[in-house]
Nucleic acid binder design. Structure first.
Length: 577
RNA sequence: CGGGGUGUGGCGCAGCCUGGUAGCGCGCCAGUUUUGGGAACUGGAGGCCGGAGGUUCGAAUCCUCUCACCCCGACCA
């Protein structure tokens, strides 16, 4: 490819709306352009990298025995009504009507379509196991798309679905996919972790997220410092002290203190000069619309999955638990947000176990700009029940090993689930087993965010000058830069090297534009070609060209006779990892 | 959905408070000189100032409505 014809509109300046490196650089280097909120076009360079990502995914999925197919982007409402998700999925499901007024959805995922397909076309356990996958555009109407490709509304995803006779076989399919995912992300050169995760609303009871380690990641992960096992913070088992309060404790007087404009724990802690761990925060939740209060120690965070489980175990049949909005908080506490406290609160109060041993703590006073000190449960308010509601964080103790957790952020690029029979039950997808009985299919589903990987790769590998592509994902492996476009010898040598590299199977861009050397260098760095060959009249007089690898950054002079073989070798080694 | 902000040539911005015929940098076109890390000069092209309505002799500027985009929050209390 010649740079003079390549459609790669690069920019000197950062786009005004981009915050993180991947978004900024993918726009600046001419890989993507936004069309609408959370919706992007992929320009030639961007699309080439996307196709390389797809290819690696395809090769490893095929190797793992999965079969590629293709399902529609537009799906009839009936299928979603059958699984119950037409109502359950919420407003992320973009709904539309056809000319007859029938309801459709833009597919955010394909469990319904694939389950009905398999149900209608397989009849015996002898046809199992089967794993079907596709690489396709999905649409999820995200409440807040952001960070370019990281959280878009339209995105490309690889989704696979496994079907097995029983749970054991399904677990084997799951393990096969887990291995395939490890190979895929290793081949892409990622620093990643497989994280044990909560299954959320997808169902099932076994799930791993594949997280690329990155400071700008949206997910928080904890990892045990001895076993190396990693968990999503909502799932991580922490060792909890279940301590009683000292029965002889003397309680201080309850006191109202002025705390102007201190809305957060950090502000209250600083203002009153008390440790965050001596403050109790009062979270107002809506359990199926009914307000409840949850008390947490000031330095802890709440885990809604645990709270929900506790409510159910206490006999409260609660389907949905959400943090209350500001209006509800004001109504329940009779005070603005930031001053909620348990005393004289007329809703059920649930408290984390770490609150039980606390004496004379600080809480909000349910009055604007006021907190209470010397607060004690039992005397100043009653607790409905205590439970473990804590979300894991750095420094917490791993329940498995007794070692502390470390915390880091990640970009979720893959997620695998063992689904069980959730969809096959709902959609009565059954097969005859060996014993002649009809049994629901055991399912698993396995996603990879193809376009998000493009952003994750840039996030993990860039510098002040631009993108630093790993060889397997680079849109082109090499760029050839004739530094004086009007010098015939320089151009002739550039053309020769360009042609020979292409003949050697190297993907190469010749920067044949009549621009100054500086411009070519800047664009080459920005786009992130792994290898640069700079050809100038000075070096050529000595029979030499300059070879630079983007990642290492150092330049070496190489003879014009050996440069093609040398570069071909670098590219080959880069592709092999 | 709540809070904040921004919409002015392709891109990044100033002008708005205090109304009076639209400006800067980059990019683009032509020419001259340049030519190993985003050149200099000269001359050009390109904008219904997001949209609608209003106030006014006169609106990018003031008022109302609306649309779009960005940031923060939606485990903050």
């Amino acid at each position: 490819m010649r740079m003079s014809t390549l459609f790669a509109p690069t920019r000197k300046e950062d786009p005004a709306d981009a915050e993180i490196a991947s978004h900024r650089l993918l726009v600046r280097a001419g890989f993507i352009r936004m069309v609408a909120r959370g919706i992007y076009s992929f320009l030639p360079l961007g699309w080439r990298s996307v196709r390389k990502i797809e290819r690696i995914v395809r090769e490893e999925m095929d190797r793992a025995g999965a079969q590629e197919m293709r399902m529609p982007g537009v799906q009839p409402a009936e299928l979603w009504q059958e699984s119950g998700r037409w109502d359950a999925y919420g407003s992320e499901l973009l709904r539309l009507k056809d000319r007859k007024g029938s309801d459709f959805a833009l597919g955010p995922t394909h469990e319904e379509v694939v389950t009905s397909l398999v149900r209608d076309n397989l009849s015996s356990y002898k046809q199992l196991p089967i794993n079907l996958y596709q690489i396709q555009t999905k649409f999820r109407d995200e409440p807040r798309p952001r960070f370019g490709l990281m959280r878009g509304r339209e995105f490309v995803m690889k989704d696979a679905y496994s079907f097995d006779v029983d749970k054991q076989a399904a677990h084997e399919s799951y393990a096969t996919m887990k291995d395939a995912y490890h190979r895929i992300f290793t081949r892409m050169g990622f620093d990643f972790v497989a994280v044990e995760a909560d299954t959320g609303n997808i169902g099932g009871d076994l799930s791993h997220e594949f997280q690329v380690v990155a400071e700008t990641g949206e997910d928080v992960i904890v990892r045990c410092t001895t076993s190396g096992r990693a968990w999503n913070v909502e799932k991580a088992p922490i060792s909890i002290e279940d301590a009683e309060r000292d029965p002889d404790a003397q309680f201080a007087e309850l006191e109202v203190v002025k705390t102007p404009k201190t809305h957060t724990i950090a502000e209250v802690s600083a203002f009153l000069e008390r440790e965050a761990s001596s403050i109790v925060k009062t979270l107002i939740y809506l359990a199926d619309g009914e307000p409840i209060a949850v008390l947490m120690r000031g330095d802890h965070a709440a885990n809604e999955v645990k709270i929900l489980a506790h409510l159910r175990a206490s006999g409260l049949d609660c389907a949905e638990l959400v943090l209350a909005d500001d209006v509800t908080v004001s109504k329940v506490t009779r005070a603005p947000v930031g001053f909620a406290g348990p005393a004289r609160l007329e809703v059920p109060i649930y408290a984390d176990l770490s609150v039980r041993p606390m004496v004379d703590f600080v809480t909000g006073a349910n009055m604007k700009d006021r907190h209470l000190t010397g607060v004690n449960w039992g005397r100043d308010f009653e607790v409905s029940s205590f439970g473990d509601f804590r979300r894991a964080q750095a420094g917490d103790i791993c329940a498995d090993t007794g070692s502390p957790y470390e915390e880091f952020r990640g970009i979720e690029v893959g997620h695998i689930f063992y689904l069980g029979t959730k969809y096959s039950d709902a959609m009565s997808a059954k097969l005859q087993g060996e014993d002649g009985e009809l049994k629901p299919l055991e399912m698993g589903c396995y996603g990879i965010g193809i376009t998000r990987i493009l952003a994750a790769a840039v996030e993990q590998s860039h510098d002040g000058n631009g993108i630093v592509w790993p060889m397997p994902l680079a849109p082109y492996h090499v760029t050839v830069l004739p530094l004086q476009a009007r010098n015939e010898e320089v151009m002739a040598e550039a053309e020769r090297i360009y042609a020979e590299l292409r003949a050697a199977g190297v993907e190469v861009v010749l920067d044949d534009r009549d621009v100054r050397a500086g411009g070519k260098f800047k664009d080459a760095e920005l786009i992130g070609f792994p290898v640069q060959i700079a050809i100038g009249s000075r070096g050529l007089a000595e029979g030499q060209v300059e070879l630079k690898q983007r990642a290492a950054g150092d330049k070496v002079l190489v003879s014009t006779d050996t440069v093609v073989a040398e570069v071909a070798r670098i590219v080959r080694e880069g592709l092999e990892g």
